[in-house]
Design a protein around this nucleic acid. Structure first.
Lengths: 337, 337
DNA sequence: CATTGGCACTCGGGGGCCGAGAGTGCCAAG
DNA sequence: CTTGGCACTCTCGGCCCCCGAGTGCCAATG
């Protein structure tokens, strides 16, 4: 069924097609690769590969193009990822090392990934659901307004304004702040709702509405929204599609602005070591593109996803390597910071 | 030189070309507009307009297209902006009303503007240089690390980690926080550097290195960076360019990722009432596009810019109206919040 | 003197045609 | 099983030609 030579032929077809973007024929195959057999033999193998659905020809008398299935087989048979070169690693460190806060890390990471892969890069902010509370701050901004600032152990900062029904005593704010911090600092975000409920109950009657308002605001900013925060970069790389504009680029541009769609594309948060590849029709939303994604985080459990969006005919090996390298670097960065 | 009828003809040419994107000839002009004269007369006028540089023909025996100069004259003769309809205003209020914090306001504003104009929208965060300090917060995050959080009166929040040379006493942090707030809360950001210098000098000798580190960090986050924060949306609208991809869309996509370029395109912060229009070659960076921008802010003085990027053949009147309306709405929103 | 109808002229774009080239499938021989 | 040969099939680019939209100019007109 799938002897070694057939695999070698498929591999050669994928490589050639990825680099030239033109259907590849039997003759050019034997020229560019040392396959040790003649073009006629290759033609036979190609006919077999086509029967099994791994390659196709755009029209009679043209070369072959890998199908989604062909790419899938190719990717599955990539035994291991080559490590990045020393120079590449140094470039990553250089690029990300000077970040000043989490926003900056996210921005730089996304641009770096876009630049390395020459595709559209997507990086999700660390999920609150999988983080710990580091600190809560209450900042009075005017008589009846308090800014509630929540800081996660990943460095992510969420803030929001709470409107309270009556003027607040500074002492009460102070008390509430220390009680909130004592109760939930260091705890996972998912436990916040439970812990905080008791604090409202323990509040003396007159202050309860104000405290309830602040706590409600806190809970709102802690709960994950569907259009969770993410950064996208590298749309300019779509320019290289050029001709196939209408068919490929337009839907991609549309998707890029729909964060909800992107989130679904990135897939479920997985371990930080698996690189997930979804090819063509494997993701129904964008059947002409591929997504390569992985989780990143402090340690083996992922706090969020990052990945790359590109045409199905992309350099899977190199892109997977870059995605993996960036994810593990940002993981280290978060652990230190 | 420029009698009324010539202006009417130019106006008609611009309108037709904007809506059809095809060179417009004398015959179709008299059909679609009530000009009261024959096509031959229009031809004479058109020849005159071409001599004066307001219109051009892509090749002999084609209709006329407005030149940059023609658009400029057209825009300058738009005597006043029609106000938005009630329904449009309600849509804006509906869209922006539910924002929860400044980040959310920026995001929603940009998307709204992109949607209203069907172009690429750019919204700059309120400039710190033109804001007042509302509050400063120091949050110890570990032994030798303090997160410095600065909140502006516009609602903008900047945070950054300071590394101090020795472990900090909570009491010292507390003291520093209150002294910093007492000194600069309510003051403009531009004065922060001066005021804060004295605080370091007044610190007792042993704590001075730590305080200096924190203050240095504060100053860093207060100083405006060249790639100041901004939000971009509506890149999907570029898909409508379709055919002219290589020439028009690719450089635009590239520019969109270069925030420094965008900043320069938006122009200098002007009053909140002027709508600035830069057409084609008037902005050297993107000679085939037009930029429509204005300032927004709390009151008549602008704290930042917002605008729209599109092809030179765009609906200037409608776009200027939308830019103005969104800017004034977000100004009101900031003033209330 | 501005306006108008008429008319010759000019290109750009689309359609049709053709030949070159690349690639295939099949077959018969090694 | 492999290989060289060969007939066949398409796509693509070039070429040509005609159509039509649009122009500029001119002479006539009120």
């Amino acid at each position: 069924m799938l002897d070694d030579r057939k695999l070698a032929v498929l591999r050669a077809i994928v490589e050639d097609y990825v680099s030239t973007h033109e259907p590849v024929g039997s003759k050019s195959l034997v020229e560019r690769h040392q396959l040790g057999v003649s073009a006629a033999t290759i033609r036979n193998e190609m006919a077999a590969l086509e029967d099994e659905g791994y390659i196709a020809q755009p029209h009679t008398s043209a070369g072959r193009i890998p199908t989604d299935l062909g790419y899938r087989l190719f990717v599955d048979r990539l035994n291991e990822l080559k490590p990045m070169s020393g120079a590449e690693n140094r470039a990553i460190a250089e690029f990300l090392g000077h970040a000043i806060d989490l926003d900056d890390v996210m921005l730089r990471t996304t641009r770096l990934l876009a630049q390395l892969t020459r595709q559209v890069a997507i990086v999700q902010y660390p999920s609150l659901q999988r983080s710990l509370v580091r600190h809560i701050e209450l900042v009075p901004v005017s008589g009846r307004r308090v800014m509630v600032v929540v800081i996660a152990d990943t460095g992510r900062v969420e803030q929001r304004i709470a409107e309270v029904p009556l003027d607040l005593e500074p002492a009460l704010v102070e008390l509430l702040r220390s009680r909130l911090n004592a109760a939930i600092a260091g705890k996972p975000f998912v436990e916040v709702a439970d812990v905080v409920a008791t604090i409202v109950e323990e509040t003396e009657y007159v202050n309860r509405p104000a405290v309830a308002a602040i706590v409600a605001c806190l809970l709102e900013s802690v709960v994950e929204r569907p259009d969770d925060r993410m950064v996208v970069a590298g749309a300019a790389n779509l320019a290289r599609y050029g001709s196939q504009f209408e068919t490929s680029v337009a839907p991609l541009l549309a998707a890029i602005e729909e964060h909800v769609v992107l989130l679904r594309l990135l897939g479920e948060a997985s371990s930080t070591n698996d690189v997930l590849v979804r090819i063509g029709a494997e993701n129904p939303a964008l059947p002409t593109s591929s997504v390569i994604s992985t989780g990143y985080g402090m340690g083996p459990v992922a706090v969020a996803q990052l990945g790359v969006l590109g045409p199905t005919h992309m350099d899977y090996s190199g892109t997977m390597r870059a995605v993996h390298a960036v994810a593990s670097y940002i993981g280290r960065l978060l652990t230190e910071g």
